[in-house]
Lab assay of single mutants.
Amino acid sequence: GTEIELESKNGQREHYTATSEDEARKIIEKAVRRGIKRIELRGASEQLIRDMQEIAKQIGLQYRTDGSL
């Protein structure tokens, strides 16, 4: 699965493990709508990382991946 670590603007951290790319995408989209400061992805697919970079650029988000592409 993909591990997703979120940090909201007030510094609250949340951790999710998505079993599918679809689920990961839903978690990320929800977080973005809620207003999130930072997202870290571990074990994400190349496609998901590309999507994440696109989203991050659009809304000026900090993100990090573990680089295991």
Rank of each mutant, 00 (worst) to 15 (best):
D22E: 12
L69V: 10
L48H: 01
E14N: 06
K26F: 11
R34S: 07
S68F: 06
L69E: 08
K26T: 10
L6R: 00
A18M: 06
H15M: 12
R34Y: 05
L48V: 03
I36F: 11
I28T: 01
A56H: 03
R64H: 15
E14C: 15
R50S: 08
H15P: 01
L41G: 00
N10G: 09
R34V: 10
E7V: 13
G35C: 10
K9G: 09
E23A: 07
N10Q: 05
Q47C: 08
Q53A: 11
A18Q: 03
A24I: 07
I36H: 01
I39C: 03
L41S: 00
R25L: 10
E7K: 05
E40G: 10
G60V: 04
D22I: 10
R64G: 15
D22S: 09
E46T: 09
E3C: 12
N10Y: 10
E3W: 13
G60T: 04
A44V: 04
N10R: 05
E46V: 11
V32K: 02
H15F: 13
L69N: 06
E23D: 07
Y63G: 08
R25V: 04
E5N: 10
L41F: 08
E29L: 14
E29D: 08
D22A: 12
S8A: 10
R33H: 11
D22F: 10
S68P: 06
L41T: 04
I36P: 02
I4D: 01
Y63L: 15
I49M: 09
A44G: 05
G43C: 11
S68L: 09
Q62S: 07
I4F: 02
L48E: 00
L41I: 11
Y63E: 08
R38M: 08
D66W: 02
Y16F: 07
L61R: 04
L48A: 01
K57Y: 07
D51C: 09
V32Y: 07
A31T: 02
I4T: 01
H15W: 12
E7N: 03
T2E: 01
R64P: 11
A31K: 02
R34M: 14
G1N: 13
I55P: 00
H15C: 13
G11P: 01
T65Y: 06
G11W: 01
R38K: 08
E29A: 14
A56P: 01
S68C: 15
R42S: 06
R50H: 08
G11Y: 01
T65H: 13
A44M: 03
D51A: 12
I27K: 01
E29Q: 12
I28K: 00
E14T: 10
E5M: 14
L61H: 04
G35S: 04
E7I: 11
E46N: 07
